[in-house]
Design a protein around this nucleic acid. Structure first.
Lengths: 223, 223
DNA sequence: AGTTTGTGAATTGGATCCAATGTAACGAGA
DNA sequence: TCTCGTTACATTGGATCCAATTCACAAACT
């Protein structure tokens, strides 16, 4: 009965550690190729190395970490080809997800999404933009109530996060204008409850980003 | 230098165990909802429970196993809604994958795929059919050389394997005729190197299966 | 007779300890 | 001075041991 921070329903320490490392990778604290020591992680979270190892296996299955036997774990790196492949997947799945969500939108949903898009447009630095952009899209997917599809999309989003950041830093504010226009068109389709139009717009949105990556292969160069 | 069965490049015991359990789940030896004891697995593979736990975490991330804290691991069950969701994903990804493969087909590839389809048509029982059908599709994807997309598709395939088996047992030979016709049309598109036609045909192929599931919700009833 | 509660065993989660592999620094030789 | 080989160290992989939680069975109570 002591109000000790209980692990909730089945939240083992390995899950907590995995979530922490995941956040650190997504936030850019840990960069691709960087080594992840078990001992260091164990000390950081005040546990033994055992839950750490399970956490690393979980992250490996998510594609965020690459484990080599007897050589340790590293943050996964992506080649341009692989990033393009993932974006091809997203070109298919994100539009499907949004097309499932649009019919379920309430007026409140659309008002909230409009506000979230304002936050994207008003972002004053790269980190703010990345965070707001992700929130906008994630929230636009919520009404689909398709947890498996959502998780699959989120996984694709996560593994490419670092390169989206690198691209944003590279181009600065250029291209944000197009991004804003596409978001506005999507919001219009949302208001019309036009699922197929929202689907096409999101497809183009992601496709354009994919082609932008192809124009900037230097992002994927070895450090 | 001793030719001891080396673990190859990074094949830890946890990966071996995970592969074994994965096979047992896919082959139907372990049924959805069935408990997976750590101790039993450890004895089966002659190791301690430690690699077993890592293996279960990996399978959990793949969606094949559901782990509840302090309550053990079980083979994942799927509701009809979830299975439909996964098939909606496959409707998008499998066609993309085949459309990437078709342009790369050699004449030998097409000859081999024709043979593999004959094996599907000649399958004399459910297990043979499932195995041959999977081989045909997997081989048709190989030329795409898109490992990430392939792995994603394979994951979707794996989590729904049990229900495909249940459906096949339920309907027997009915519907196999349509399956064969669709495969023949796909082969024709392959020979023409008509990627967009192959894509549409595979979309219809998977969509039809999804709708068949919806007509047989009894497959997903509690045992 | 059905429900509930308590006690027991079985199973899971975690920590410490030991072996094996990979890495790196150091030294010797060309 | 550069290269190669050897040795020492750090890190990972695995096994055994201990604590905590859950589940099952049985007994008692309503």
């Amino acid at each position: 009965m002591t109000e000790i921070l209980r692990n909730g329903t089945g939240l083992a320490q390995s899950s907590i550690i995995a979530a922490g490392v995941r956040d650190e990778i997504l936030s850019g604290t840990r960069r691709p190729g960087e080594r992840i020591g078990q001992q260091a992680l164990a000390e950081q979270y005040g546990t033994s190395r055992l839950p750490v190892r399970e956490a690393l296996r979980m992250l490996e299955s998510e594609g965020l970490v690459t484990v080599v036997s007897n050589a340790g774990a590293r943050v996964s790196k992506l080649e341009l080809d692989e990033c393009v492949e993932i974006y091809r997947i997203r070109e298919q799945l994100d539009p499907l997800l949004v097309s499932l969500a649009v019919p379920n939108y309430t007026d409140e949903d659309i008002a909230r999404l409009t506000e979230l898009e304002r936050a994207v447009a008003m972002a004053s630095n790269v980190e703010e933009f990345l965070s707001a952009d992700r929130t906008f899209h994630v929230e636009s997917y919520r009404a689909a109530r398709s947890p498996i599809l959502f998780e699959t999309v989120e996984r694709m989003w996560n593994t490419t996060q670092h390169y989206r950041r690198a691209y944003s830093h590279l181009v600065g504010d250029d291209g944000l204008g197009l991004n804003h226009l596409e978001h506005q068109l999507m919001l219009a389709a949302f208001r019309d409850r036009d699922a197929s139009e929202a689907r096409r717009l999101l497809y183009s949105h992601i496709r354009r980003t994919r082609r932008a990556f192809t124009r900037h292969p230097e992002i994927f160069q070895e450090a």
